[in-house]
Amino acid sequence: MPVRRGHVAPQNTFLDTIIRKFEGQSRKFIIANARVENCAVIYCNDGFCELCGYSRAEVMQRPCTCDFLHGPRTQRRAAAQIAQALLGAEERKVEIAFYRKDGSCFLCLVDVVPVKNEDGAVIMFILNFEVVMEKDMVGSPAHDTNHRGPPTSWLAPGRAKTFRLKLPALLALTARESSVRSGGAGGAGAPGAVVVDVDLTPAAPSSESLALDEVTAMDNHVAGLGPAEERRALVGPGSPPRSAPGQLPSPRAHSLNPDASGSSCSLARTRSRESCASVRRASSADDIEAMRAGVLPPPPRHASTGAMHPLRSGLLNSTSDSDLVRYRTISKIPQITLNFVDLKGDPFLASPTSDREIIAPKIKERTHNVTEKVTQVLSLGADVLPEYKLQAPRIHRWTILHYSPFKAVWDWLILLLVIYTAVFTPYSAAFLLKETEEGPPATECGYACQPLAVVDLIVDIMFIVDILINFRTTYVNANEEVVSHPGRIAVHYFKGWFLIDMVAAIPFDLLI
C-alpha cells in the first residue's frame, strides 16, 4: 500500500533555474538572501570558489559584500557603492579590487542584480563577478574607477581610450546646418538635424578633445543650467548677453562664444560640459537660429522629431539603469545623424518603425519583477520565466494532490484497515475457520451469522477504491517536481505499489 509523501509542494524551481543557467555559462556568482541580516550568502558556485580561493563552506553565510576579499588596494568608495546597491532595488555595476585567499590582487567587475517577489519586494541578490585585470595590471588604489561605466561593446579594446569628441564640431553647429540641408533625401539625416562627426583615429590627448566618459557625465550638469543662461549661451556672438549692473557675465554663455574659444586653444572642462549641455537642449539648428531671432517656433511634425517616441515608452518600462547606459552608448555611435529632440514631445505622434532597438522591449506582467540581467542570462521568455513566489501546480481535472487534506485522511483510514487485516486475518484463519468446520452448517442466516465476513468484505472494497484513487494521485519525481499527468501517474504506480495493492485487495476469504 503506498505511503508516498512529498510535502515540499507547491515547489518553486526558480532558484534552481537560475543556478542551472548560470552554471551553463561558466559564470562566477553568488546568491544572497536579502531578508536576513547583512544579506548572507546562501549559494556560491564553483567558479566563484576558484576565483577567490575560498571553499564553499568558508563563503556560505558570510555577508555578500565580500568584505573578506578586501585588501589594501580595495577602494572604500567601491565598497560603499556595493553596500548601497544592496540597500536599493536597481541593478548596478561596480569595479573593485579584490584579494584572493593567497593574497593576489585582481580588479573585478561586480554586477549586483536584485530579484523581487510578486509584491515588488527584493528577496534575493545575485552578484556576478568578472575579472577585468590581474594584480600586475591593477593601478594605484588612489585612482577611482567606479565613477565610470563599463566599456562599450562596439569599441575595440585597444581603442576604448582613444575615443574623442571634438569640441569644434559642437561649436560649428550653425555652420554645418547648410551642408545638412543640402544633403536632402540623399543624406542619412532628416531636415533640421545636426550631424556630429566623431574622430576615432588614435591621437595624443589634446586640450581640444573630450573623453567619452566626460560626455556621459554632461547629463548630470544640465539641471544646474538655468533657462535664461541656456538661451544666452545659444544666442551666440551676435547678441551678447546682458548683465545687470554690478553683475558679471555668465561664464556659461561665454563658453560657447566662437570668438572667445578661437582665441585660446584650450577650454576648461567645466565650460566644455556646460556648452555641450546647452546645445543638447535645442532640438535642431533651426531652433538655434530661432533663439537668435527671439522667436522659438513649435517643433515640426516630421520623422526626426518622432524618433524618440518609442524611446520614451522603453525608458518607462525599463527595469534597470543598464538600459540608460545602453541608450547613452548607442546615442554616441560615430558617423550617424543625431536628432536633438526633447523627450517631452507630442504624445499624438505616431511611433516610426526603427531597425535598431535601443531599449529592451516591454516586459510582460509575469516578468515585471525580474531584472534585465536575470532575463538576459536565463534566456527565457515571458511565458517560461515565473515570478519568485509559491505557485500552485497546474493539475488535470479529477486529480488528487498527494499533500491535500483528503489524501491525508484517506491514508490514515487505509492504515487502520491494514492494521485490522494484519490482526484479524490470522485470527480468523486459526480459530474461526476451525469452529466453522466443526459446527453445523448455517446457510440460512447468511452474513448475519458471520459479522467478521462483512467487515472483511468492506475492507476489500476499500482497498479496491484505494487502488483507483492512487491512479489519480500526484507524486514527486526525482527532481522534486509534482507530477499531475494521468499517464505518468499510471506508469509510476504500475512500477511501484500496484502489484502489492492488488494482492492485498483480493478477497481470499470469499474465494475459499
Rank of each mutant, 00 (worst) to 15 (best):
V122C: 09
R92K: 11
A190C: 06
V113K: 09
W154R: 05
D119W: 05
K166R: 12
Q11A: 15
M137Y: 09
K362Y: 11
A293M: 15
L380K: 04
P168T: 06
L167E: 15
A78W: 01
L212T: 14
S275H: 09
A156E: 15
G186R: 14
S322Y: 08
S379D: 04
Q11C: 14
A244D: 12
R292S: 05
D197K: 03
V222Y: 15
I42W: 01
L256N: 07
F14T: 07
R5D: 09
L378F: 03
A303V: 07
V198I: 12
E177D: 08
L296H: 08
G238L: 14
P310D: 15
I288W: 08
I31Y: 01
P2K: 06
S179F: 15
E372D: 04
A223C: 03
A79G: 05
D219P: 06
I359D: 07
R312E: 06
F14E: 12
P168Q: 10
T270W: 03
A268T: 11
R271N: 13
M133N: 06
L173C: 13
P114K: 05
E365W: 15
S179Y: 05
P299L: 03
E91M: 09
D144A: 12
R269H: 12
T152A: 05
P237Q: 05
A188Q: 11
A175G: 15
R77S: 12
A172V: 01
Y327P: 14
Q376C: 06
S320E: 07
R27P: 03
T74R: 01
S379L: 07
P151E: 06
S379W: 08
R301T: 11
R148A: 08
D136F: 15
N45W: 01
E289I: 06
A175C: 09
R159S: 08
P352F: 04
T367M: 14
E208K: 01
A260E: 14
G192W: 01
V215R: 06
P72R: 05
E58H: 05
K161R: 12
S104F: 06
W154L: 13
Q75L: 07
A211S: 13
A32D: 01
K332W: 01
H302C: 11
A34N: 12
L155G: 10
V138S: 13
V196W: 01
L315P: 12
R77D: 05
R77H: 13
I96K: 01
Q75D: 15
D199C: 01
D199H: 01
G53K: 05
G158P: 12
A175R: 15
T216Y: 08
L173Y: 15
G226R: 07
T201Q: 09
A307F: 13
L171I: 05
F125V: 06
G246F: 07
A350C: 08
I359N: 06
I96F: 01
P298N: 01
T201P: 15
P150A: 08
I330N: 14
E95Y: 05
H221N: 06
W154K: 15
A188I: 06
G88E: 13
A40Y: 06
A244C: 08
L256F: 14
S272H: 11
Q81A: 14
Y99A: 01
A185Y: 09
T13Q: 12
C49F: 01
S266G: 11
R326D: 13
V180Y: 15
S322L: 07
A34E: 01
S209D: 10
R301E: 14
R176C: 05
G236A: 12
M133S: 12
A121M: 04
V180K: 10
R242G: 15
A277I: 15
D199N: 05
V341H: 11
A268W: 12
S179H: 10
T174L: 06
E23R: 01
S239G: 05
V341P: 15
G224I: 06
V138D: 14
K21D: 12
V370K: 10
E274S: 14
D119H: 08
P352L: 13
A277R: 06
T367A: 13
A169V: 01
E230V: 05
H70E: 01
V180A: 13
T305G: 12
R100T: 05
V341D: 12
I336D: 09
T13I: 06
H143Q: 11
L324N: 14
I363E: 12
L167R: 05
I19E: 01
T13H: 15
V370W: 11
V8F: 10
V370T: 06
E90L: 13
I30T: 01
S182W: 05
T329V: 07
S263L: 09
T65C: 10
Q376T: 04
F48N: 01
A282P: 07
Q61C: 14
L324S: 12
S379P: 04
V325F: 11
